[in-house]
Design a protein around this nucleic acid. Structure first.
Lengths: 268, 268
DNA sequence: CGTATAATTGATTTTTGTCAAGGCTCGTGG
DNA sequence: CCACGAGCCTTGACAAAAATCAATTATACG
């Protein structure tokens, strides 16, 4: 059972100083508007590793932008099984769902100490309402998350254990390396083998054996909260992973280049 | 190999006569605006069973609202495997993705003869731009599809063959029964056992055996393009399926009741 | 240190896939 | 009207993948 949520709430930070800007929901906002952003926020909050940020079934009237740290979105089933739906990195919007009035259906847990930007639901909606380009950004971010979920669906449905692991770790590597530039294929990564199993529909034991095989083949290294990608080419070939296709669809520039992005800017 | 796309293009139908209105992207539009909707459409189109509506990798500059019939969204992998990502029913928006400029990554195939409402990409974006409430509707529909994809992820990751089948068929039953009211737990359903397998990460053979077991237990009947749910309670218990939770999140009324829905209306 | 969490390994069972062969149904063309 | 073929469903025998059960062995941390 994850420990209870600890709340350390700070005054709103000045959004103009936020390094994350381009990666978050507020990306379309320009200088003048960003200065007024703090009016929509309740402030910043930090949580400790292991804390639940959102708990399925418990009313939650806030949305969050993850500012720093890792989180996981997951679902607990009645029979004790757990499915990890997504790993969230800085910039991720947490708590958005089709019916914001109903309690959340998924939990979100901090995998490291983490900090986030807190939006009360009503103010978040006001923001979306008053800044149409933010609404489009919201649609784009949701479409991106949907696309990633579909990729994971393919991963679970049509790949075996080794392929699934290779695919997930490559994806995580690329996403993390974009946030915290990586040296020599190595990134800090807090996921345990049990997390990987819960995300991939495998048991931790089977993840362990399969990881061992990949390690012995010289494809990767994993341990001590560190992931080292030794042979990205081979991993990609094994998993049928196409970085370009992924990037074309959800890359940073997709919003800037894509039509939806153009709309987002034109609407301003 | 699915046969080539046949195109029968008709003049735009009058959107005021469209029975689907509430279920589609245009739901937030009122009387005056709906009358101008045809200005954004290229027209209606019909396709035959087995036709590909969208093909992954082939440029496609249109979006569609499915008006009648069934479709499937799927992905072909390099090694010949296939993953079904979603089954689409009337009202579904087809072809929306994070980067509309890049070719689609998923294919969409008609599972019955089908008809749809065609939007050229540029005009679709103009609609979203000029009618902010349509933008919010787009965000909501995408969030709904994302939520469903996450449910499917849990289904593949943490349920065995019988549970997966029970879950999927119940979901399909409920969705179809909302579109075409069902009598005695029976609906017309064009999915083959191979379709189910490709959606559930199982082989058609294993689907067959498992379906047989469910049939012998008196839980359901499936054949002749007809699905009969004999014991919905037992199926739901087996699958851990909670219709209320699903409905609370994505039910028809969720938009009307939910805050996002309120926004959608207030923005007008 | 001592405890808790995470990783590892072996033996065994269960679930699912693979290969192969027939059977059923329905529409088409002779 | 019947024969044929395509697509789909069904079943059996066997193989492979993954889960389960059960210890151990690191590793991290107060």
């Amino acid at each position: 059972m994850p420990r209870r949520v600890r709340r350390h709430l700070f005054l709103p930070a000045d959004c103009r100083l936020c390094a994350l800007h381009d990666a978050a929901i507020c990306a379309p906002l320009g200088g003048g508007e960003i200065a007024r952003m703090h009016g929509y926020k309740a402030g910043n909050r930090t949580v400790e590793q292991g804390d639940d940020i959102i708990r399925q079934g418990e009313p939650c009237s806030e949305l969050y932008t993850l500012l720093d740290g890792w989180a996981m979105v997951y679902q607990d089933l009645a029979n004790g099984r757990r499915q990890v739906l997504d790993f969230a990195l800085p910039g991720a919007l947490l708590g958005f769902r089709p019916n914001l009035e109903a309690p959340p259906v998924h939990s979100v847990q901090a995998l490291t100490d983490a900090s986030m930007c807190v939006f009360p639901r009503a103010r978040f909606l006001a923001l979306v309402r008053e800044q149409p380009e933010v609404g489009l950004r919201l649609a784009w971010m949701t479409a991106r998350d949907h696309f990633l979920a579909q990729e994971h669906l393919t991963n679970l449905g049509r790949r075996n254990a080794a392929e699934r692991i290779a695919y997930l770790l490559l994806e995580i590597y690329l996403r993390a390396a974009r946030t915290w530039p990586a040296a020599g294929g190595s990134i800090a990564m807090p996921l345990t083998q049990e997390h990987l199993g819960d995300a991939l529909g495998l048991t931790a034991v089977h993840v362990n054996r399969t990881l061992g095989r990949l390690r012995r083949q010289g494809l990767l290294e994993l341990g001590g909260r560190t992931l080292v990608v030794r042979d990205a080419e081979a991993l990609a070939a094994l998993a049928g992973f196409e970085p370009e296709a992924l990037h074309r669809q959800i890359g940073d520039d997709a919003l800037a280049r894509g039509h939806l992005g153009q709309v987002a800017r034109q609407v301003v």
